[in-house]
Design a binder for these strands. Structure first.
Lengths: 194, 194
DNA sequence: CGCAGATATTGCACTATACGCAAGGATTTC
DNA sequence: GAAATCCTTGCGTATAGTGCAATATCTGCG
């Protein structure tokens, strides 16, 4: 668990760069920020910036928290109603996101106006969906159903974040509750035959 | 309906550029293609390339077919089971995509390895989802449910394309059938309480 | 037709991005 | 504390992308 000095410094620098990037991006829009400025603000050389991130959009997005092994196992081996187990899984993931709310808000700002940043985030989301699909295929026979559930689930996180950004006075986990209710309602509508 | 000569030429050039881009991208990977090469292949200057597309990724993705007004109205005012109306809507949209299967395949190849292209496509998809959400909110009271349904629906197109790319001997519309069945199965799993 | 206004194409110049390479500094390992 | 490893940095270079201004082409109207 204890990281070496090198590792810790690396993570620290990566984090510093992300903060510097988001800070400048929120002020002037990421398009109008140069890598040179970011590097200066983070106290490193331009060349070093590119040793950490391939571009400023990746620096803004950073590395989103991964699913924990524990949460994945609980989902794979769970025995409750699927909807409940998925909700528990999501609650854990959203709790991890909540650790860094200010950063999350800033990333949201950037994503709204930057295509490249959206693409990078989507790369992470695709990997998350793959992980989830794999988990779910232990409980669901139909692989397309597993994929659909995984999409539903990761989409719910995205919609919860959007809702949370719009509504002041709504915590992220409360937003997830609202969104999840909508997801279940949508499922009911899809299965009803009238 | 009839476009002026100018309009037609513009569309033709835009299309030529897209084809040149995809052609080169499939051969060597879009990363290894320069805008100079693309411009040369399309018979225009580099400067003109940037008058049509802001970057090579946008040139590769092009402009996906929009939902038709007719299809949207049918969905808004439909009276059948929601799942059936959505499926009809998707069938129409997929039929439009099928018009250009070779291009679709090439775009798929690019998307698999290019983050920026994915981001651009996602920009279009976000707009489509907004349109769909708007339509659906005429039939569904809960706005979160409408959003969830819209996500489900556009995601289904994406999954159908992925399936179609993987399985030879499966038409795009057949792939959509399989994927949609999975979507309905997933909805059933989400609503069942055991 | 033929001209005026609008729109497209292009070259040129310039800034920003991104990476390879090599030198030098710091950290780890033994 | 010496050797191996990793990190930072500067320099050089190829490519991306945009503003500007000149030239070419198209459209509508008299």
């Amino acid at each position: 668990m204890t990281l070496s000095l090198r590792e810790r410094r690396r993570q620290q620098t990566a984090h510093d760069i992300q903060l510097a990037t988001l800070d400048l991006a929120v002020q002037k829009g990421l398009e109008n920020v140069t890598t040179e400025e970011i590097a200066a603000a983070a106290g490193i050389s331009t060349r070093t910036f590119f040793n950490y991130y391939t571009n400023k959009e990746a620096a803004a997005v950073g590395a989103p928290p991964a699913f924990t092994e524990a949460a994945k196992e609980a989902l794979r081996d769970g025995s409750g109603p699927l909807a409940d187990d998925l909700k528990l899984f999501l609650d854990q993931h959203v709790a991890a996101l909540t650790k860094d709310e200010p950063i999350l808000k800033m990333i949201g700002t950037v994503l709204r106006s930057n295509e490249k940043a959206r693409g990078i985030l989507q790369g992470f989301l695709i990997m998350e969906r793959r992980e989830l699909t794999e988990c779910l295929s232990h409980r669901v026979q139909n692989p397309q159903a597993a994929a659909a559930l995984a999409s539903n689930t990761t989409d719910a996180v995205g919609r919860a974040i959007v809702l949370w950004e719009h509504e002041e006075n709504l915590s992220l986990s409360a937003a997830l509750d609202v969104v999840w209710e909508g997801t279940i309602a949508a499922a009911a509508l899809l299965t009803s035959t009238s």
